[in-house]
Design a protein around this nucleic acid. Sequence first.
DNA 1: GTTTACCCTTAATCTAGTTTAAGAAATCAG
DNA 2: CTGATTTCTTAAACTAGATTAAGGGTAAAC
Lengths: 193, 193
Amino acid sequence: MTHPLTLHLGSFIPLSAEEKTLLVDRAKVRQVKRREKILLAGEVCQHYSFVVEGCFRLFGVDDRGFEHNIQFAAENDWIADIGSFHTQKPSQLNIEALEKSSIFQIKQQDLYYLYTHVPKLNLIFKVLIELKYIEIQNRVLQNFSSTAEDRYLAFLDQYPNLSNRLPNTQIASYLGITPEFLSKIRKNIQLRG
Amino acid sequence: MTHPLTLHLGSFIPLSAEEKTLLVDRAKVRQVKRREKILLAGEVCQHYSFVVEGCFRLFGVDDRGFEHNIQFAAENDWIADIGSFHTQKPSQLNIEALEKSSIFQIKQQDLYYLYTHVPKLNLIFKVLIELKYIEIQNRVLQNFSSTAEDRYLAFLDQYPNLSNRLPNTQIASYLGITPEFLSKIRKNIQLRG
DNA sequence: GTTTACCCTTAATCTAGTTTAAGAAATCAG
DNA sequence: CTGATTTCTTAAACTAGATTAAGGGTAAAC
């Protein structure tokens, strides 16, 4: 009855039954396997994806082939390469499921159709992008807090539910350190705390 | 005659004479001295500022008192703590003029007034935020490109005009290295190139 | 339900970047 | 124009974090 997507978007500004129908008709459900990628670097990001269940990572690969996690998204969060989606230029990033997941996807053309037929979505998605902007800016700030240990503690604080759920390799990649060094940090914290 | 602000915003979507008037009435010109701060950490960011002339930096201060530049903004660019502006929560960041500057400022309440009276500004500012999002995401990606030298070369590429204009201390703070190490990098590049 | 692939930890060695210091060069305000 | 402040460079000693390697543990998949 209550569609997860209308429930989520309606929490910003209430939506009429009509508006909900327009929305639901353009959101396609999709099951994603663990390790499956829903965006490959080189492709244009064609969808905004809303996570109903599971967990994803947005990551880039550097010149030397190392992966770097930029962002995680779990239940009730959105994931997309916002840059590629809006410019329709190839993405430099990948989006991969870290767990078996279930998502709703809205295609770029459909979102722009919805923008004109449900004008309040313009406002809602402006707010969503603002929130994502704040998230990524906090990430830049967090990277400043000098030591890797400080950054790890900040990560624990910010994602208490994800820290038990994600493998250390993924957390290390997010923090910009090696898994080995994350092990060292954990040991040091244990010895003291 | 052609106001810098309407010229800039009109380049996204043309504005009527009436819309221009509404806009210009709510944009206050301001002269800013070198070193003067237009946002202090702890304050709420009350303005979007459009740079007509001069140059600004957005920066945070870490636990140990070190400053870290997140973003620069020169002519025809906007600067604000988007997070603080939209949530109306205290900012963790500062905005400081790196040169004697001239700007137009729009207050938060005025921008929201304009959103309702000039609806297309909703769309224009959504695009502006998208562009800022892409800029900061590229910054996160750039920080991945392994060595500090690579990051410096990427910086030169991305801001060819700013690299001659900014002191090395500011560039080093943006790259996340010490000015001393930036000197070393420059020397190494010279010895080879 | 077991085999295979992934994941975590520890430790030794190594390196990119920091710190400290100090003199030379450039820039700014009066 | 000039003194004062900021900025740039060099170099030596130091440290946070990477790399490599290797053994044991855990969870996924057939």
